[in-house]
Amino acid sequence: MQLDLLSEKPIFQQIAGQIEDAVFTGGLAEGSRAPSTNELAALLGINPHTVLKGMNLLVEEGILEKKRGMGMYVAQGAVEAIRRKRQAQFYRQYVRPLLEEAAKLNMSRADVAALLEKEEKHGSD
């Protein structure tokens, strides 16, 4: 797990993002125990309150759930929830910046579409 203290993103959001990634890629299976706040805090050298704030973000989104006295667990249906969330964010996070950059480079929509098509045919080069 890697954190960037200089990133624009607050640390607690970075922590939430990292755990979310682990769940989405299957590193943390649904129903398994999530790392505890204290474990993460000590491992990353981060204030436990900051870590907790990040984990609570995931609880709000239904990705993690608290089990009384037992810590945090990955919720059933978490992967699907993440997929829906990321689909909703896809336009804002990837498409719009793509088009903005294309505009700066004087590339038309057609140019972008052509590139996408080329990518689909040949894979990355």
Binding site: T37, N38, A41, A42, L43, G45, I46, N47, P48
Partner: peptide, 14 residues
């Protein structure tokens, strides 16, 4: 240093 920060955070969390 690393060990100190880890132990400090561990004790603080506990």
């Amino acid at each position: 240093r690393e060990l100190f920060y880890t132990l400090l955070l561990g004790s603080y969390a506990k």
